[in-house]
């Protein structure tokens, strides 16, 4: 069963001659890791940004639980989809804990006492228990990424979108990330990843799309595996 479905999604940026996405159809199944693979500039990030509703001028439709993402209210959308950007985009003027608490307080109106314990538990589960009072610039790339994941999960997102999650990670952090993503699957979180990291992709995905020049070329696990082996 699919949590997010894209139908004929096409996108052209106003300052670009070529379209970023052309008639893209995809499904992100519940409780699985969906991978969007392709070279740089193939349209992976654009697709994730459309799903996250950061880009809205696309044609076609993206639906979450049978409701168009564009029509979801702000609070429902936040609870539906979390997005971890390639650069993580954490708030540098806040501590790790505040990065996770502030969105819940402002968006859902929770008091700090209501959510602090739950948030600390989540940070602990991601191995961040010793970093809760640190500012973002005091963290490593892998730690920043875990904070970004925690921040998205604090909002109870059912689907987690990750753009090039391994691009700034060392092999050890990449292995940690894989374990975290697998543990999230057990909790029922659906995950969609854009990546061109073959090794990481090979170790984690169970549903894959290969994108080139804004088109989905294949939705075949075997094909991708062959592609990986050839590379």
């Amino acid at each position: 069963m699919s949590l997010i479905i894209g139908r004929n999604v096409s996108l052209k940026y106003f300052n670009s001659a070529l379209p970023a996405l052309i008639d893209v159809n995809f499904k992100i199944p519940i409780g699985r890791i969906t991978l969007f693979m392709g070279k740089s500039g193939s349209g992976k990030t654009s697709l994730l940004r459309c799903i996250a509703n950061l880009v809205t001028n696309y044609t076609g439709d993206i639906v979450f639980n049978n409701c168009s993402i564009k029509k979801l209210s702000r609070s429902v959308r936040v609870r539906s989809i979390g997005f971890v950007a390639q650069q993580f985009n954490l708030f540098p003027h806040l501590t790790v804990l505040e990065n996770c608490l502030q969105p819940q307080q402002l968006v859902f109106g929770y008091s700090r006492s209501m959510i602090e314990e739950k948030t600390l538990l989540l940070l602990n589960s991601l191995g961040l228990e010793n970093f809760t009072d640190r500012r973002i610039h005091q963290l490593s790339g892998g730690q920043m990424q875990r904070v970004a994941i925690a921040r998205a999960l604090c909002m109870d997102a059912q689907a987690l979108l990750m753009d090039e999650p391994t691009s700034s990670l060392d092999p050890e952090s990449t292995a940690q990330l894989r374990d975290i993503l697998l543990s999230l699957l057990e909790k029922g979180v659906s995950i969609a990843i854009s990546s061109h990291d073959m090794l990481f992709a090979k170790s984690i995905f169970d549903h894959c799309y290969f994108i080139e020049s804004g088109r989905i070329l294949e939705e075949s696990t075997d094909h991708i595996r062959r592609y990986m082996q050839a590379s």
């Binding site: 996250a52 509703n53 936040v78 989809i81 950007a85």
Partner: peptide
């Protein structure tokens, strides 16, 4: 964008 995605 982060703030937008988080629902601010």
């Amino acid at each position: 964008e982060s703030a937008e995605v988080l629902g601010y």
